[in-house]
Design a protein around this nucleic acid. Structure first.
Lengths: 169, 169
DNA sequence: TAAGATTGAGTAATCAATCTTT
DNA sequence: AAAGATTGATTACTCAATCTTA
C-alpha cells in the first residue's frame, strides 16, 4: 500500500533514511580506505585509530581505560587489540606508576614512524576518495553538522579532535 | 620529535578528521540504537537492515546476490545472516525459478510484522536521539551531503532509498 | 568455464567471570 | 568492596575452497 512514490526526489523526509545514510557512508569509507591503511601498516583499520590516538597524546601513551572509552571498544576488546599491536612491535604496555592497577599503552619508536607514514598515505587516499564530491564550503558545513551529532551520540570520542595536544593555559 | 603542533583550532580543515567524524557518528548511532532494535526483534542491528530491505522489496524477497551487494556483506556473510533469520522464523529461502542456481531470501509473514514493529520503535528511538541537535533545514542539508558521499563510496546501497518499490515503466 | 551460493578455517569483537591493587 | 585490566567462551564476520546449475 505504499504510495507509488516513484522516488522521493531528494530521498529524504525520513529520519530512518538519514541514519541509514550515515551508516552506509561510514561503511563505504571503511571499505574504500581500509586497503591503504592495512597495506601501509599491516594492521586493521581499527588498529589505526588506536595508533593515531596514541600518536596525538602527550608522551605517546594513554591509559587502557581512556583508550577504551575513546575508541568505543570494550575493555576486553581493547586488551586484545593492544596485544596485537605489541605483537607487531608498534606499541608496548607500561605500568602506571601512580596507580599500579592501571596500564598505559605506549607507542614504540617504530609505531610512531609507521603511524605518521600511514597518516600521509591515508590523507592521499582520502583526497582521492573525496575528490569532486563537495565544495570547500560544503565540506566545512558537513564537518560542522557531523561534529554536533558525534558529540551527542559518542562524546567520549571527542577528546582527540577537541584537544589535540594542548591542555595548558 | 613531534612539533608542538598546537593544531587547527576548530578541529577541522583536516579531512582525516572529517572521515573520523563520520565513523564516530556512525559508531555512536549504532551503539545508541542497537538496544532498541535488538530488544524489539531479538536480532542484531545488521539483521534489521536485511529485514528492512526485504520489506521494501516487491514480493518481500531479494536475490542473495543483490542483498549481499546492497548490505555490503560478503556472499558468505550473507548466507550466515540469512541462516540466522531462518532460525528465527523471520525469513525463508526459496529457489529462483528462472535460474536454479539462485536463491531468494523471502520475508515470512511474521518477519514482515516484526520488521514493521521494529521500524516504529526505531523511528521513536531516532527521534529521541536526534532531538534538539539540528534544525529541520540542517537535517535536510546533512542528508543531502551524505547522500552524495554515500553514492560515491557505496553506490550499491542506494537502491533501497532511490527506488523504493517501483522499477517498472 | 563461469555465476550463484554455501561450507571450512581463521580473526576480531562481545559478555561474563576473574585477578590485582586501591 | 570497587576500579582497572585480563581471560574464557561465544558470535559474526572474512577469505579460500567447494558444490551446483547455466
Amino acid at each position: 500500500m505504499t504510495p507509488p512514490s516513484v522516488e522521493t526526489p531528494p530521498a529524504l523526509g525520513d529520519r530512518i533514511t538519514l541514519v541509514g545514510l550515515i551508516l552506509e557512508a561510514a561503511a563505504g569509507l571503511r571499505r574504500t580506505l581500509a586497503p591503504g591503511l592495512e597495506g601501509q601498516l599491516g594492521v586493521t583499520g581499527q588498529a589505526f585509530e588506536i595508533l593515531l590516538r596514541l600518536s596525538r597524546s602527550p608522551g605517546h601513551h594513554l591509559r587502557m581505560t581512556d583508550l577504551s572509552a575513546q575508541t568505543g571498544l570494550t575493555p576486553s576488546g581493547l586488551t586484545r587489540a593492544v596485544d596485537r599491536l605489541e605483537a607487531a612491535h608498534l606499541a608496548v604496555r607500561e605500568v602506571c606508576p601512580s596507580d599500579r592497577r592501571g596500564a598505559f599503552a605506549t607507542l614504540t619508536e617504530r609505531g610512531n614512524e609507521q603511524t605518521l607514514l600511514a597518516c600521509e598515505r591515508h590523507r592521499l587516499d582520502i583526497d582521492a576518495t573525496l575528490a569532486g564530491i563537495f565544495t570547500a564550503a560544503e565540506e566545512v558545513e558537513l564537518a560542522r553538522l557531523l561534529q554536533r551529532l558525534r558529540d551527542a551520540v559518542f562524546p567520549e570520542a571527542a577528546l582527540i579532535s577537541a584537544e589535540p595536544e594542548v591542555k595548558r593555559a
